[in-house]
């Protein structure tokens, strides 16, 4: 298989397999989790403004009082790489073209040099949070193979995409094929690892906000 055949495969069959596993995985996992249901709360509710599931979905994106100071790397590093990933994934013109070809949806792209910069900043932030995970006793203590593995499968698409864009190390075709392959790896593992928080965090925040909102506590 030469470079071009490799690229053709990852763009065709490979992509189809990965997207199928991703979609089936996401639907199955969401069903597996949320079909467990929960009991109705029979205690008399107390209403308070700002206390609801939806409020918490938004409010929990901001650090609670005192927390930023206690763990600045988690928050600042976390913000940077999440926003950076969002910019890179959804702001880069070729990505939008791909999404359009799959779903028909499209939106204006960001300048490619800006996306390039965002990719560099994202990678830097990811390296910082990785060091923080190694360095901080609590994070190191909690870390399992999955934490290191999911870091790597998130980092690789950004790295290979950036290297393809910069025509670094390998011929463009090969690097692009590797980039798409790394994205496929990410898509395949996402539903079955902690990366699934991309979906469940909305449900989790909502449950927390709703249970406490029932008590009139804006959490």
């Amino acid at each position: 298989m030469n470079d071009l055949q490799f690229l053709t495969w990852v763009r065709g069959t490979g992509l189809n397999i990965a997207v199928s596993i991703f979609l089936l995985g996401v639907f199955w996992r969401l069903f597996e989790i949320y079909s467990l249901g929960h009991k109705k709360d029979l205690s008399a509710p107390r209403h308070a403004s700002g206390a609801s599931g939806l409020h918490t979905v938004f409010r929990r994106s901001l650090p609670p009082p005192g927390m930023l100071k206690r763990s600045p790397v988690s928050y600042i590093g976390g913000y940077i790489f999440h926003i950076g990933l969002f910019i890179v994934v959804f702001g880069f013109a070729p990505h939008i073209l791909l999404i359009k070809s799959l779903t028909g949806l499209s939106w204006p792209a960001l300048p490619s040099q800006f996306v390039n910069l965002a990719a560099i900043v994202t990678m830097a932030a990811m390296v910082v949070v990785l060091f923080d995970r190694i360095n901080k006793p609590v994070k190191r203590f909690l870390s399992t193979f999955e934490d290191w593995f999911t870091w790597a499968v998130t980092f690789l698409p950004v790295l290979t995409g950036w290297m393809a864009f910069e025509h670094m190390l390998l011929p463009y075709t090969t690097m692009l094929a590797l980039h798409i392959l790394s994205v496929q790896l990410l898509l395949v593992v996402l539903p079955f690892t902690k990366l699934f928080h991309v979906f469940t965090l909305f449900g989790s925040r909502w449950y927390n906000g709703r249970v406490n909102g029932h008590k009139g506590v804006p959490v």
């Binding site: 996992r29 597996e32 989790i33 949320y34 467990l36 763990s71 988690s74 976390g78 901080k136 609590v138 994070k139 203590f141 909690l142 870390s143 399992t144 934490d147 902690k194 699934f196 928080h197 469940t200 965090l201 449900g203 989790s204 449950y207």
Partner: peptide
């Protein structure tokens, strides 16, 4: 179930 799936071990 949702909570366990959401934890990213941030500590």
């Amino acid at each position: 179930a949702s909570y366990f799936n959401s934890c990213v071990h941030c500590g």
